[in-house]
């Protein structure tokens, strides 16, 4: 049953990758990569039950946070071309 959930998540990841390759604008690609990251978190969580190693959940938790910060960092870089820029008021 975990295998079925895993296949579902993998199919979704493939669809997100298709959109990341096709995407006309850069924001489509960032959206797809963000979604890909969320699916990676679910994938790790399911993998933990499939292999029976509870340590994987810590990795999933860290991945949520890194995914969020990474998306914001890429967005800021696209907007300002500089990660240390002060936001304009």
């Amino acid at each position: 049953m975990f295998i079925a959930a895993m296949i579902g998540i993998l199919v979704t990841m493939a669809l997100a990758l298709c959109r990341a390759l096709l995407g006309p604008t850069v924001y489509d690609r960032i959206l797809s990569v963000n979604m890909f990251g969320t699916k990676t978190v679910l994938f790790i969580a399911v993998l933990e039950f499939l292999t029976g190693r509870p340590d994987f959940l810590d990795l999933a938790l860290i991945y949520v946070l890194i995914n969020f910060i990474g998306t914001l960092a890429v967005l800021k870089f696209v907007r300002y071309n500089d990660l240390g820029a002060e936001p304009e008021e």
Binding site: G8, I9, L15, R19, T25, D28
Partner: peptide
């Protein structure tokens, strides 16, 4: 689990099918 996977696939399909960003 099954409903969640199906919804994920539907969302991925939506990502491909919907017309604009």
């Amino acid at each position: 689990l099954i409903l969640g996977s199906i919804l994920c696939i539907i969302g991925g399909l939506g990502l491909l099918r919907l017309p604009d960003f």
